[in-house]
Design a protein around this nucleic acid. Structure first.
Lengths: 154, 154
DNA sequence: GCTAATTATTAGGTATGCTAACGATATGCC
DNA sequence: GGCATATCGTTAGCATACCTAATAATTAGC
């Protein structure tokens, strides 16, 4: 079955790719869940804690603690909603934005460096494969609305 | 820079791919680190704790506890090496093997199902891209040498 | 045979996930 | 208006997974 051989290959490649890229996040000095949550706030805009928990597919108590850390680090601000005082609005601070952009640049740099080691034929192959891979499990393809385009998830 | 666009695309695709595949692992009732370590033992054969820690890119104390859990669950056996009594040989039990094969089948099924939704041109593209992607961050490409064989780490 | 290196473990810290229970607020129903 | 109920976030307590530092056991070197 070639389908399953390709499936195994893609699975293994994805694991190794992320494993290497993720090392760069250490420089941010925040955990991966924090980085992912922050990226949603930076690239997707302010939202409530519950909404962010849903997007990140974690339970509210988990998000409470993720945000605790980000707030202590001065990367995110909590603000009680005026319309509904049960809700807490979350927004990235300028410092959070700068941190995330620097991290994204580092991640892309690692990947780009690996890509530059390829022959031009191999690179062109990946260039055409990338959009197909993105569609494979794109949020639109599923019923669930998954984490947005963020570009920094974990 | 097309290189960086491809890098971003591959990164995002890898995140979504693994997120979807990993959901299947919940059925195994063991954590992802345990599943990954077990898969190395099953598909790559017995090895020492330190060697496994290196392959999995975690520190020995972390591997000690990962194996603690697997041993308690009856999926892995510890055995002092006869040649060097400092070393601990790890090997998957028959039950560990069965569990992992069932899990692998589920993961591959999810991926294969997604692949089957592609056109034959798209599939053929991924078929050729998969080996290139695997080489991108393959252990051989790095300084380390012993990490090879595994074949299924997660 | 004493010293140094290697291997795994224990101890203790942080981050990330969960459920259950709670306080504060909003909504609905009478 | 007022009470019951639902919703939102938090606290409390538990599990997994990662780390560094220190320790015990064993092997290797001189």
């Amino acid at each position: 079955m070639p389908v399953e051989r390709v499936a195994l290959g893609l699975h293994s490649a994805a694991i190794h790719l992320l494993r290497n890229v993720r090392r760069q996040d250490d420089a941010m000095r925040i955990g991966s869940a924090q980085a992912s949550a922050l990226s949603v706030l930076v690239f997707g805009g302010p939202r409530t804690l519950g909404n962010l928990a849903e997007i990140e597919m974690v339970r509210p108590p988990t998000m409470t603690r993720i945000i605790d850390g980000l707030e202590q680090a001065g990367l995110v601000e909590r603000k009680r909603s005026a319309q509904d005082r049960r809700k807490v609005e979350l927004l990235a601070t300028p410092r959070g934005l700068r941190l995330l952009e620097a991290g994204r640049a580092r991640r892309v740099a690692v990947l780009s460096q690996a890509l530059r080691r390829l022959s031009s034929a191999e690179f062109s192959l990946l260039e055409r494969a990338a959009p197909v891979l993105q569609r494979l499990f794109s949020p639109q393809a599923e019923a669930t609305q998954s984490k947005a385009a963020a570009g920094a998830g974990s």
